[in-house]
Amino acid sequence: MKEAAVEERQPSYLARLRMEYRSSDKAGYIMVLPYVLHFLVFVAYPLVFAFILVFCKWDIVSPMEFVGLRNIQRLMRDTTFWTAVTNTLKFLALHIPLQIVFALLIAVVLNGPIKLRGFFRGAFFLPFVISGAVVTILWQQLYSTDAGVFNLILTKLGASPVPWLTDPSIAIYSIAVMATWKNVGFYIVLFLAGLQNVPRELYEAASIDGANRGEQFWKITMPLLRPVTLLVIMLSTIGGFGLFIEPFVMTGGGPAESTLSVVLYLYKNAFQFLKMGYAATIGFALALMIFLVTLVQRKLLDVEQPY
């Protein structure tokens, strides 16, 4: 274990360490021991292992084979992988704005003098606590082209049915709408918490200055909500890159690979084709993308620490 900021001076490093140990709280070592063990076994070891796998070909049952940079080269020209990346970005492109606009709108309404606030907040929050498995199984039926509830309503209104999950240019957006429905309650609550931290005096001062409700919103509320907004964007970006159970249950990645997400592709490579090395490479590429995208978001929104 590395010790924190110990300067090397006389007396010797070791002696100093010993002194420091003697004066430290011994219980501390025992209390963090489970964490350290857990970290070594379930974080450090898998990370190192994943990194090694990037340079190997391995099907779990036969011996591991070193292949150099072949997995990375393959990834670069694997059109299916890039399709999966594009799909994930398409998903985020609809999911994030939808999430923010809807969550913010409802949060602002709920923050006003509303009766039954608890009921409404609870209703919007309900999908969030329920398993993704339930939500996807349910929405698969709602989205069914021939007998789904959405198309029944549409045909009753005289519109033609929409192939929600069977048209390659629609399916990923259908999934994005569903994911928004599932998660938006959580973000409403985050925005509500943010709104409650906005001092009332600011609004009072603004209305004395003659600012109307709209101006108050854009000039006071939005700037103060920036950290929460960034948090919402980052959390939904990270969640969006992890998109898996929805396409896994609803479409298997089809039609025409339009809902194949990066994690679903990783899962297929690892557990259907037993290409563990390649799957690990996809995992690192995914981590890198998440890191870069959230970094850009931070810079664009100019917030150092969102919380």
């Binding site: 099907d59 299916t80 390659p168 089809g254 039609p255 025409a256 690979e257 297929k268 259907q272 084709f273």
Partner: peptide, 23 residues
């Protein structure tokens, strides 16, 4: 063949693109 599942997956992809979606 130990790659049979992957080959069927590749065919399935073409089936989806060509037959089902006419691409």
């Amino acid at each position: 063949s130990k790659y049979l599942i992957e080959i069927f997956d590749a065919i399935s992809k073409q089936y989806d693109l060509c037959c089902v979606n006419g691409r």
